[in-house]
Design a protein around this nucleic acid. Structure first.
Lengths: 244, 244
DNA sequence: CACTATTATGGAACTGAGTCTCATAAAATA
DNA sequence: TATTTTATGAGACTCAGTTCCATAATAGTG
C-alpha cells in the first residue's frame, strides 16, 4: 500500500497494534474470550485501556481481520472470462487462501477456531463479513447492471452466503479445515441444489414435531403487547449460558 | 398449555410482562432501540430495573418472540406426503403466518420492522432463530436418518437459511411485507439456482476490483497477528456508526 | 540544534447492560 | 390467622465503550 517511509512513529504503532493482537489472541485461547477483559489485554501489552480502544473499536475487533480477501481479488482477475460466477467465487477464495504465506495461514486457522469458540465472535464476524448477502448482491448487481433489488441477484447472494454458513458448520462438526470444506460445499452447489428429491413423506409427522419442539425451546411465544396471556416465569430468565 | 388456574399471581405476572413489552416496543419505535435504556422501559412500565431483567434476559429479548413457529408445525403436518421439502418449508411458513390472528399479525409486522431497524436486534434474531443452519440441518438429518455432518443436508440447510436472508434483504429494499417476499424467493428457489448462466465475462475486472474494495472496507476471517504489518490509525477506530 | 506543530498516550469520569445479594412485601397454602 | 413460597426493589458490583483533557513523544522547520 504505502511502504515508503515507515518512520519511527509508524513502526511504533505497528508494533503496538501487533503486540495488542498477539497478547489478546493468547489470552483468549488460554482463558476464553468472555473471560478475558480489555484491561487484561492492555496490561499484557503494557499500554493503557484507552490505547487499546484507539487501536480496536471493540474487543471483537482484535480477532476480526482478514488477509484473504485482497488476495482473492487477484485470483479472481486471473480466471478466464467464461468461468461461471459460482465457480469463480469458489476458486477465488480457495486460491487466495492457498497463496497465503504459511505463518498467516496458520494464524488464520487459529483465528477461525477462536471465532467458532465464542458466539459473540461468531455474531460479530457474520455482521462485518464483507461478503454478507447485501455486499455480494450489490457487487453482482453493479457488475452486471442489474437493479439492487433484483430477486435473482439477492437469492444468488443469499445462497452463496448460506453455503459459507454450511461450510462453517460442517467444518465445525467434522473437524476438517474450513477452506477444504468450503471448496467441497461450493463444488456441490455448482451441481445444483441438494436434496431436491426429498419429500416430507413418512417424515411429515416427525418433522412437524421436531420443528414445534425446537420452536418452543428457542423463544418466547408471548403475544406481547396488549392483553396477551403468556408464559411468565420471573426468576427463570437469566441469559442462557454460552457454550464454550 | 396449562390454562387452568390463572390465579392472581399468574395474572399479575402476565400483565407485568405484557406491560413491559408494550412500553418497550413503543419506546423503541419512538426513539430507536439503542437510544432507549432499560431504565426507561422499567420506569414506563412502573417496575424496577431488576424486575425487567427478571422477565427478559436482555434488552433484545423484549422484541424477540415468535408466534409463527408453533403454527408452522401444524401447517406442516397437513401437507401431502409427496410434497418436496423445499415446498413444504415455504408453505409451512406462509400458511402459519396467514393463520395468525389479525392483531398478532400486525404486531408481527411491527416487530419485524423493528428488528430490521437495529443491527443489534438483527444479530440477536439470527443468533436465536430456531431455524439457523444447524437447527434446520439437525432436524432434516434426524428425520431422514442421515448423519449430522452430511454435506448435502448441511448445504440444504444453508441454502434455506440463505434464502431467508435474501428475503429479508429484499423486503428491506423493496418495502414489501417480508412474508410475501419470502414466498416468492422460496418459489424461485424451487426452480433451481438463479444466475447459473452468468459468467464473469467482461465483468471480471470490475468484480475483482469491487471485491478488493469492499474487502478493504470490512472483513471477516483473518490473520495477521504476529509480525503482520497492518494498518494502524490510532484515533481513527471508533466503532462504525450504526445506521438507523 | 532549538522551536513549534502534530499526534499518540494515559488518566479519570461517565453511561449503560447485565449480575448478584438481601431484605421486604405480597400471594398461596393450610 | 399463621406459615411458606415467590415476586419485587434497592444497592453494589463488573465490564465494555465513550469523552475529555493534560502530557509526552515524534515530526517538521528555520
Amino acid at each position: 500500500m504505502r511502504p515508503p517511509n515507515p518512520g519511527l512513529r509508524e513502526r511504533k504503532k505497528a508494533r503496538t497494534r501487533a503486540e495488542l493482537q498477539r497478547h489478546a489472541l493468547r489470552l483468549f485461547r488460554e482463558q476464553g474470550f468472555a473471560e478475558t477483559t480489555v484491561d487484561e489485554i492492555a496490561a499484557a501489552a503494557d499500554v493503557s485501556r484507552s490505547t487499546f480502544f484507539r487501536y480496536f473499536a471493540t474487543k471483537e475487533d482484535v480477532v476480526l481481520f482478514d488477509d484473504v480477501d485482497p488476495l482473492m481479488a487477484e485470483a479472481f482477475a486471473e480466471l478466464p472470462p467464461d468461468t461461471p460466477l459460482l465457480t469463480a467465487l469458489r476458486t477465488g477464495v480457495t486460491t487466495a487462501f492457498r497463496r497465503l504465506p504459511p505463518e498467516k495461514r496458520e494464524l488464520e486457522e487459529v483465528r477461525m477456531a477462536l471465532v467458532r469458540s465464542a458466539p459473540e465472535l461468531q455474531a460479530a464476524a457474520r455482521e462485518r463479513s464483507g461478503l454478507t448477502v447485501t455486499a455480494i448482491a450489490d457487487q453482482v448487481a453493479d457488475t452486471y447492471g442489474r437493479p439492487h433489488d433484483d430477486l435473482d441477484v439477492l437469492l444468488f447472494a443469499g445462497v452463496v452466503a448460506g453455503a459459507r454458513l454450511a461450510a462453517q458448520a460442517l467444518a465445525d462438526r467434522s473437524g476438517e479445515a474450513y477452506i477444504d470444506v468450503l471448496d467441497r460445499v461450493m463444488m456441490r452447489l455448482e451441481d445444483g441444489l441438494p436434496l431436491r428429491e426429498l419429500t416430507i413423506g413418512e417424515g411429515s409427522a416427525r418433522l412437524a414435531a421436531g420443528i414445534a419442539d425446537r420452536a418452543a425451546r428457542s423463544d418466547d411465544t408471548s403475544g406481547g403487547a396488549s392483553g396477551g396471556a403468556a408464559d411468565h416465569r420471573p426468576d427463570a430468565p437469566r441469559r442462557e449460558q454460552h457454550r464454550m
